[in-house]
């Protein structure tokens, strides 16, 4: 079983993962740094405190599962999985290269310890529902966590899944929306406003929690509240900062899908010491 880390350790891991994210995307010369950096604390909290999982037994049937529905943020998932031991830490800089386990978007064919192949937005809630239904049938304590992008909720399938999750009382499913306010073409409010987001999930019948997605203790409390909420699934609306931790990437739509130059990588690494 993955041992739990304390707050100081998790904050140090978060900083380390940010450095690795910047470096690996820089080495790949393409990728999505902004939405990887915004999701770091959520994933660190899940993998090092909340989820019951065992890197030495990755297919343990009763494990908790995490699906990165916003698959373009693959680097954050790869770094956290490498940190746990699910993936080779010394190969992070092979991201997006031929034959790498670190494909441009999560691909179970290349990295079988992933829970799902993702990248086409909108499908993660449904995948999570399938896994959560299987857990229910198996009478397993397994919980399923799905991270969505805020732009991603523009996909209609998300709301098919939202309706289904409440109707079928999927209280072993927890969705986290990485609400960083930016998508590829610019600010979400200018492309296709998704607000009020918590109200939408609530109207669909979900328990909702709105929080600062960079505060680990707040996230810990929220995940506890989610697992204690019975009869309905939980949606956590995590307000985050795109590009968090690197001053020139923060809130900058350019770094949704642009790799940092070698010079920018160095500047970012200095900021992340």
């Amino acid at each position: 079983m993955q041992p739990k880390k304390n707050l100081v350790e998790m904050e140090a891991i978060a900083k380390k993962l940010r450095r690795e994210i910047v470096e690996m995307i820089g080495a790949a010369k393409s990728g999505h740094p902004g939405g990887s950096l915004s999701a770091v604390e959520v994933l660190v909290t899940l993998y090092f405190d909340v989820m019951r999982h065992d890197p030495s037994n990755p297919k343990w049937p009763d494990r908790d599962r995490f699906i990165l529905s916003k698959g373009h943020a693959a680097p954050v998932l790869y770094t956290v999985m490498a940190e746990c031991g699910y993936a080779p830490a010394d190969k992070l800089n092979t991201l997006r290269k031929l034959g790498s386990v670190y494909q441009g978007h999560p691909d179970v064919r290349f990295l079988p310890t992933l829970e799902a192949s993702t990248g086409s937005l909108g499908e993660g809630v449904s995948l999570g529902l399938g896994m959560a239904l299987a857990a229910r049938l198996n009478q397993s304590p397994s919980r399923t966590y799905v991270m969505l992008g805020d732009g991603e909720v523009q996909e209609g399938q998300i709301w098919e899944g939202a309706m289904f999750g409440a109707f079928h009382k999927m209280d072993n499913l927890c969705v986290i929306v990485d609400y960083n306010g930016i998508q590829l073409d610019g600010f979400v409010k200018d492309i296709m406003e998704v607000a009020p987001l918590a109200e939408k999930w609530k109207a669909f019948g979900w328990h909702t929690i709105e929080l600062d997605g960079h505060k680990i203790p707040v996230l810990q409390a929220a995940f506890k509240e989610a697992s204690n909420t019975k009869g309905k699934p939980t949606a956590i609306i995590a307000h985050t900062i795109k590009g968090k931790g690197v001053s020139f990437m923060e809130n900058n739509p350019k770094f949704h899908g642009t790799a940092p130059t070698p010079d920018e990588v160095q500047r970012a690494l200095q900021e992340l010491q």
């Binding site: 449904s126 399938g130 239904l133 299987a134 857990a135 098919e160 289904f164």
Partner: peptide, 21 residues
């Protein structure tokens, strides 16, 4: 019962299969 939502249904099937069903 998935309701009239085939996209959701198809991906739910994927989730079921990932979990061994």
């Amino acid at each position: 019962s998935c309701g009239i939502a085939e996209s959701n249904m198809a991906a739910i099937a994927g989730g079921f299969a990932y979990a061994g069903k």
